Simulated assay, not measured.
Amino acid sequence: MKYKIIVDSCGELTDKMKSSGCFETASLSIEVGGHHIIDDDTFDQADFLRRVAECEECPKSSCPSPERYMEGYHCDAEHVYAVTLSAELSGSYNSAVLGKNLYHEEYGEKDIYIFNSRSASVGETLIAMKIAECEEAGMSFREVIDTVEAYIASKNTYFVLETLDILKKNGRLKGLKAVVATALNIKPVMGATPEGTIRQISQARGIKKALVKMADEIVNNLKESEQKILAISHCNCRERAEAVKEMLVSKAVFKDVIILDTAGISSMYAADGGIIVVV
């Protein structure tokens, strides 16, 4: 195996990625109501959402340990890459970097690079796919890094959630001045800054209008859409995700479209009914 791509479990893997043998998940974990959940193939979204709804305490997440990343780097692959959720939102990136340092101390030099997605969920998915595309094209390790870093800088992340409570309570909305008037059913359209923090783009009354506004924002910011993959993840709302897809493909042509159900960490933050779009 020439290359290996480790994606922390905030990033969803497609079935094709899982079966390729080139991708590996570094699982985060979740605590909800005294129950410990590993965000891996055993994650039960319906059970998790039920536990969150029944628990007064906010769920908490823990990132993979540096040792977990070090174990992932210890393989036969010549080039190893890690993709983590935004370093502004989680310790996963720093953990992956520490794991690299531990690997070098223990085993010596190796081509290892950690990508800070500056995004989450399907944003990580797209980055992992881009790494594989570059490797399959025969690029050198340095060329892959430069190409993928430029790709990360060109991506945009958007999301509309039914509730921002978990993001708020876990301190992921620091610096946001806008106050969401939940009593008026105001739904903000959110996005990622170039640094990987969360910003509010606009808002609308009701989830349907907010999704329309999000789609308009996406189209207004699109460049060379025919060369891009439209990636949508949803938390327990496939019909809503399909509706967003139809809004977008009716206004722009994309190279491909993927729709994935959120894994554990993304389900925790997106909450029931949340939609994330990355393009």
Rank of each mutant, 00 (worst) to 15 (best):
K2A: 12
K2H: 07
Y3H: 15
I5T: 01
I5R: 01
I5N: 02
I5K: 02
I5W: 11
I5Y: 03
I6Y: 01
I6R: 03
V7S: 11
D8T: 11
S9M: 13
C10F: 12
C10W: 07
C10Q: 14
C10L: 12
G11E: 07
G11K: 06
E12L: 07
E12P: 03
L13W: 01
L13Q: 02
T14K: 07
D15Y: 09
D15K: 13
K16H: 05
K16L: 12
M17G: 00
M17T: 00
M17R: 01
K18S: 10
S19E: 09
S19D: 10
S20K: 02
S20T: 03
S20Y: 00
S20V: 01
S20Q: 01
G21C: 09
G21M: 05
C22I: 04
C22F: 10
C22G: 04
F23S: 10
F23I: 11
E24S: 11
E24G: 04
T25P: 01
T25Q: 03
A26T: 02
A26V: 01
S27T: 01
S27H: 08
L28A: 14
S29A: 13
E31V: 09
V32A: 04
G33H: 06
G34Y: 07
G34D: 10
G34C: 11
G34I: 10
G34Q: 09
H35W: 12
H35Q: 14
H35F: 12
H35D: 09
H36Q: 15
H36T: 08
I37Y: 06
I37G: 00
I38L: 14
I38T: 14
D39L: 12
D39W: 06
